[in-house]
Design a protein around this nucleic acid. Structure first.
Lengths: 355, 355
DNA sequence: TGTCTTACAGTTATCGATAACTGCAATTCA
DNA sequence: TGAATTGCAGTTATCGATAACTGTAAGACA
């Protein structure tokens, strides 16, 4: 008896509180919920007149299907997960924007998490996304091992690595051809007449390794000297990264007997730090030392000396990743892992322009 | 018959594909699903031994509750929606990071959407979040009218405006005291000995209006002149905003008979543009014209001339918004709208340091 | 010794949608 | 003209969990 009361209350709710449900529309129109559902999905079963009536009522009631209910029965959440090391970094912010824009029109939403470059945190975040049964994941990872990704594979959720690869992991990857990045930047410095080119390298990521490889190849190809001490890493820990790391690294380079006359920096913040160090030492950019950064961050135009930088089209990476992710949703066995390498391009500004 | 086959297949799935369900654990252990559910929720009904057995099996199967199923019955999605005008903007990126970090530990995930400052797009995004039944929303809005928010209120979903207010809308708000921002910046310029202080103002938002009000009040209080033409707006359309807008606005100010000797800029990108214009005109900063920006974006340190800027603690805003949002989740009638104004603080750098 | 608690676990209905079938009338085809 | 098809809508079972009751045995208490 009490139970029946309960049910009646529930039903009467239809027109008072809470969003409209299929059932409400059905009752209003004297149809079954299935019919309404079919209209919603554009099922051919439904006649023109009925369809019109239903659509009209849906508008009036401002009906919005319940994602949870739909997800439960269809097994799709219409949600994509994105894991980045740092949302504040313009590269990742741009990627996030691009993905968001790309999937928006297709009914997907984006859950974004920032791992703060902490592998442990990232593991947890991936776990959360798994628990939420996102339809696909896009990850710029701070991991060093593969078990997080094995878990994703177990659940048969498609995922795409961007920007950074993982060793010993066969997975979809979209990013920049980092060796080409190093090649492009270094070759440019050579063309500008630099004779002793140093490199401030990043640490830990595949990205850093690739860029250094390109740097070395360019030097070798053009028979340029590679003096000892000309490759300096920026610290991997918090304070020593980014621009302050670049500053410290540059100081080391400046203290060498043979000072370099060109520097290729792992990324733009590092390059900014390096430039500070150079200017603080009373040297000129680019006359004494030419500087090339990487990332072409939007604020490159506003530095003391506008910074030449290798541009990686982050929007394109985001869009590609999103497209690939969506194309993989729902497929049982992903066809084959796909690797897409974007070619970088150089944006030349004053910091390296000697001629 | 066929039906039964279907069911059997479904059940046998338990140990082959797909994530483990409550039912799988229950069957394994010869218990009912309800018992497992109770263990999951820490219900006191369950005995120690049983609880331990269940927990052990949950670990082994790597069990993760299905959010969709749970959301359907409990009415909570454990999801917060965030709408910002531009994820690329460090202010919003920082807010997003702070919210994400704050809610992470409490089992919530964050759906982030970027409206590109387009009211129409924002409306759609809010609609999406409503359809997904997020538990609460945090919005930095580009809207001019209130109907989107009425819709949110109808669904009884708590929401919090940040950074920008909406006219005629009584809602939770967390942001910076913009009048104090204008006051602080302008007073600082006065203290630095500026005699003719101009303002490059933003357009359209409550933020812009508040900052200008503070600027004017500071001038009035200190009996400073307010010559005509000393308040210049940056364009509201795409190309004329940000730094290029600041450049154009500064050019106007430079062409006045009485050139200003101090400028308070609506935000840092605008200030960067203004500084470019000043330097390009062969003038010195701060000797000829002192510049103060707003936002204290992380790259302020790397400009041609380090920029004095009013800092708004975006992380604090994000955390406050997240805390308020979570505290409001599930409450039928929100107690009363709350307004929290953070006090800004000035970060002085070379661009305004005359003494 | 019989009733009342207490501790512990199970039953049943439900959340809001969809998939897979099942009708039933009108139409088409042989 | 009877059988098969088509168009259109309804029935039923289900997705994976939780809320609200309903037992049942062991121990407490009078």
């Amino acid at each position: 008896m009490i139970n029946q009361q309960g049910r009646k209350q529930r039903r009467s709710k239809a027109h008072s509180s809470g969003p409209a449900r299929l059932k409400d529309i059905a009752q209003d129109l004297g149809l079954s919920t299935v019919t309404i559902s079919k209209v919603l999905r554009g099922h051919p079963d439904i006649g023109e007149e009925t369809r019109a009536r239903v659509l009209k009522r849906m508008k009036e009631l401002n009906y919005q299907p319940n994602f949870a209910a739909r997800a439960l029965i269809t097994g799709r959440t219409w949600t994509i997960g994105l894991v980045v090391p740092d949302l504040l970094h313009p590269f990742f912010a741009l990627v996030a924007k691009a993905i968001s824009a790309d999937i928006r029109g297709q009914g997907y939403s984006l859950i974004i998490t920032s791992s703060e470059d902490d592998p442990e945190l990232e593991r947890e975040e991936i776990g959360q996304l798994l628990a939420r049964r996102v339809d696909a994941m896009v990850i710029a990872s701070a991991q060093h091992d593969t078990d997080s990704f094995r878990r994703i594979e177990e659940q048969q959720i498609p995922y795409i690595l961007i920007d950074r690869r993982i060793e010993n992991l066969q997975a979809n990857f979209i990013g920049v051809d980092d060796e080409a990045v190093g090649l492009l930047a270094t070759r440019h410095l050579i063309e500008q007449g630099c004779q002793r080119i140093a490199h401030i390298r990043g640490a830990g990521t595949s990205t850093a390794a690739g860029r250094m490889k390109g740097y070395k190849r360019a030097l070798a190809t053009h028979r340029q000297p590679q003096p000892p001490g000309y490759v300096v890493p920026v610290g991997i820990s918090g304070d020593d990264r980014g621009s302050s790391g670049g500053y410290a690294a540059m100081e080391k380079l400046l203290s060498l007997k043979q000072r370099p006359d060109g520097v290729f920096c792992f990324n733009d913040p590092v390059a900014m730090g390096a430039m500070h160090a150079i200017l603080d030492a009373g040297l000129r950019i680019p006359e004494d030392i030419a500087v090339v950064g990487c990332g072409n961050l939007i604020y490159s135009d506003f530095l003391r000396v506008p910074l030449t930088s290798v541009d990686q089209d982050s929007a394109a990476i985001g869009k590609s990743a999103a497209d690939l992710a969506l194309s993989l949703v729902g497929k049982k066995e992903p066809p084959r892992t796909k690797t897409e390498l974007m070619s970088p391009k150089l944006v030349v500004r004053a910091s390296s322009l000697r001629k």
